[in-house]
Amino acid sequence: MFQARNLTKRYGRLTALSDVSFSVRPGEVLGLIGPNGSGKTTLFECLGGVLPLDAGSLVRDGRPMTGRERTATLFYLPDAIVPWPAQPVRWALDFTLGFLNGRAHLRDEVVQRLDITPLLDSTIGSLSKGQRKRALLAIGLLMPQPVLLADEPFDGLDLRQSRDVAAALRSYASGGRTMILSIHQLTDAARVCDRFVLLSGGAIRGEGTLDQLSALATARGGAATSDLEEVFLALT
């Protein structure tokens, strides 16, 4: 679908992202996994256009994407935000659907799947972390862009909600939507993702399916395993 090529981001002397490259395929759920401070959120903010890159670009069909193309292709759903805290969830959905020309026909379905009907009249600022996460995921799923970048989509959700959200994400991915999810809980990542990008210290340590990463870990001297946690530890 597109490739990220040599993405580099520096904060003064600190290099947050160093020559990060990976590819994204249509309709897949790609998991960006890495320990805290590995640069996942920075990478998402750069991909989403809310942070400037120092170097690198997103490439599609062999040429760099313009800002407008990126905006039309990717929707970035940040983590730890409380947008429009005084407004009810119902209004936030209507506003984002109208302002960003979202998929209005999916509204009721998404609301039902993420179980946010009881929250529609509550203000966003009054929601718990998990409730807010589900409301924001609904916004993300309703947006028109073919690629959804969701930063920590399972953060704040309990086990049942995590499973439901994972099922919803998989369902929309099977319908053609591409998902790139930043996840620090590897059990969640293993449950939902088709492929993985391992990020550590601002650099890519591996990219591929669990089997491909497992083979890579073995090639680097790790024990043969199909457990994502073991693979992750071997490669980072």
Binding site: W84, D94, G98, N101, G102, A104
Partner: peptide
């Protein structure tokens, strides 16, 4: 406000009026 027809590029006027309505609510 009602959302516009999907699949078409958002018109500048429609988006701007959504934004003005949002700013009014925020005010």
């Amino acid at each position: 406000m009602r959302s516009r027809k999907e699949g078409t590029a958002p018109s500048a006027v429609s988006s701007f009026s959504w934004l003005v309505a949002k700013e009014y609510r925020e005010l």
